[in-house]
């Protein structure tokens, strides 16, 4: 049978076993050295965490360009703007006139197809009155939309990113009364445009549609003052 150990014997055992500590003792000086070590370790840990936090914050704060995926119903071509970008070397400027269409049909979606257009182009819709609204599609996708008046507002169309582009461009133009458009001044979706087109009723309106090439020009102070609307192929260097 196993023999029980008594509590008293257990006390004796614990006293006996710990009765001969080593000569080196734990002193306050040694404890303070340990304190300094702990503090250094904590400080380095805090510094490491702070550095990591700074890196994360820096990554989030550094300005960067994010390429957003274009919606399916918006034309993904590059828009040529009349103002220079942050690192521009050239302005793109309307060049030779490729096509000029005129129509008296408001509320009717008109289709124009051009071939062998291998240069960047600028398109513009002009209306005889100031109460119209125009929508331009390229290959069925919304390219531009907005108020339409005698002064053309041009939109540029580049083809660099258009894989499989074979030189053929299909435009559709719709001019409607501005009062029939709910989202005037806003970006509209493909569905919005289709709804406007479906609801539009034919009426008499004078409007024009023109396509010109876009010509890169070195950035100069003179160019910025050239008025766009009065440009004709004869006055613009090709």
């Amino acid at each position: 049978m196993p023999t029980a150990f008594t509590e008293s014997e257990l006390r004796d055992l614990l006293e006996h076993d710990s009765a001969e500590p080593p000569h080196s003792m734990v002193t306050a000086a040694r404890v303070h050295r340990r304190v300094r070590r702990i503090r250094r370790r904590r400080l380095s840990l805090v510094a490491g965490v702070a550095a990591a936090a700074l890196v994360v914050a820096g990554v989030n704060a550094i300005p960067r360009t994010v390429t957003a995926e274009a919606p399916d119903d918006i034309w993904a071509g590059v828009m040529a703007q009349p103002t220079p970008s942050s690192s521009p070397q050239y302005y793109y400027y309307p060049g030779q006139l490729i096509a000029h269409e005129q129509s008296s049909k408001g509320g009717v979606r008109m289709r124009y197809t051009y071939k062998n257009i291998l240069k960047a182009v600028s398109v513009a819709v002009t209306c005889s009155d100031t109460t119209s609204y125009a929508i331009v599609w390229v290959h069925g996708m919304i390219f531009s939309n907005g108020d339409c008046g005698p002064m053309p507002v041009r939109s540029g169309l580049f083809f660099q990113g258009s894989a499989g582009y074979n030189g053929e461009l299909e435009f559709e133009v719709l001019v409607v009364r501005r009062k029939d458009v709910a989202k005037v001044g806003k970006t509209i979706s493909r569905a919005d445009a289709e709804a406007i087109a479906a609801a539009a009723k034919p009426y008499r309106a004078q409007w024009g549609f023109e396509v010109t090439t876009l010509v890169p020009m070195p950035q100069t102070t003179d160019l910025t003052s050239v008025p766009g609307p009065s440009i004709t192929p004869a006055t613009v260097p090709s």
């Binding site: 500590p21 080196s24 734990v26 404890v31 303070h32 340990r34 304190v35 070590r37 702990i38 503090r39």
Partner: peptide, 18 residues
């Protein structure tokens, strides 16, 4: 273990001092 015990006590006292 005496060496570990010293280490343990120094650490405990250092934490207590903090």
């Amino acid at each position: 273990d005496w060496a570990t015990a010293e280490d343990l006590l120094q650490t405990a006292l250092a934490k207590a001092w903090l």
